[in-house]
């Protein structure tokens, strides 16, 4: 009986120890893969890969989803120049990413966030939290929409890029007008810089940094 009690105690200990690493596991976790390779994605490295190969995230293209012309509802400023007016000029861009899963099992995209810069000025940071599963050995194309607006972009430009604009001797309004009028032909580079968080089969996060420019250089 004493032997039984000791063995039972050991058994509880072993099973508990086996269970502990799973504490943070997602309920959606799939089968465990033993390999723990490190993968390079873009210029960054995938961090802390425990069980799955890091998926590849790449900006495929940017599309204009919805566009209010800069001139619509515009008003003239003191110098007689057309401005977007107090109501602003919304611009909705679709960022289409290819997400490649190199693993033999499905993997979940937990969240994706990226900062968008027009030329060298960061205007917006977009975040997406919807769970998406990428099937094994497939490349999925995912579309993330972001809303930009003349007035909010102007505010962001003035606060974070104000001194740079002064150095470049450019008025924020002139730069915005150039962007809003040139967007249909993508006459200036738009860059994205962000991270995608995947959940591997063992429940651990795989963080994949990515960056991209459109139109491609």
């Amino acid at each position: 009986m004493k032997k039984f009690a000791v063995t039972l105690f050991l058994l509880i200990g072993i099973v508990s120890l086996l269970a502990l690493p799973c504490l943070a596991a997602e309920e959606k976790a799939a089968t465990l893969e033993k390999a723990a390779p490190k993968a390079t994605v873009g210029k960054g490295k995938a961090m802390k890969i425990a069980a799955a190969k890091a998926p590849m995230v790449k900006l495929d293209r940017i599309e204009i989803a919805n566009y209010w012309g800069y001139y619509l509802d515009g008003i003239l400023d003191k110098e007689g120049k057309l401005t977007a007016g107090r109501r602003g000029a919304p611009l909705v861009l679709s960022f289409v990413y290819s997400v490649q899963n190199p693993n033999n099992f499905k993997i979940m995209l937990d969240d994706l966030k990226f900062t968008v810069a027009f030329e060298e000025f960061e205007l917006n940071t977009l975040t997406f939290f919807d769970d998406n599963y990428i099937p094994a050995k497939t490349t999925d194309y995912m579309r993330f929409n972001g809303t930009f607006d003349y007035n909010t972009a102007n505010l962001s430009l003035l606060v974070t890029g104000g001194f740079k604009l002064q150095e470049m001797n450019i008025k924020s309004g002139d730069l915005l007008k150039k962007w809003w009028e040139g967007i249909s032909d993508f006459t200036f580079p738009i860059t994205v810089n962000g991270t995608a968080t995947f959940v591997g089969p063992n429940g651990k996060n795989i963080i994949v940094p990515f960056e991209g420019t459109f139109p491609p250089k």
Partner: peptide, 30 residues
């Protein structure tokens, strides 16, 4: 013991949700 451990894991699988409201583009985005 197996069921007990499994119960531990299931209990631990719960997710706690937190919200965060941030200014990344506005007047205090600097």
């Amino acid at each position: 013991t197996f069921l007990g451990a499994a119960g531990m894991v299931w209990a631990a699988q719960g997710e706690i949700r937190l919200g965060s409201i941030n200014d990344m583009t506005g007047a205090t985005s600097d």
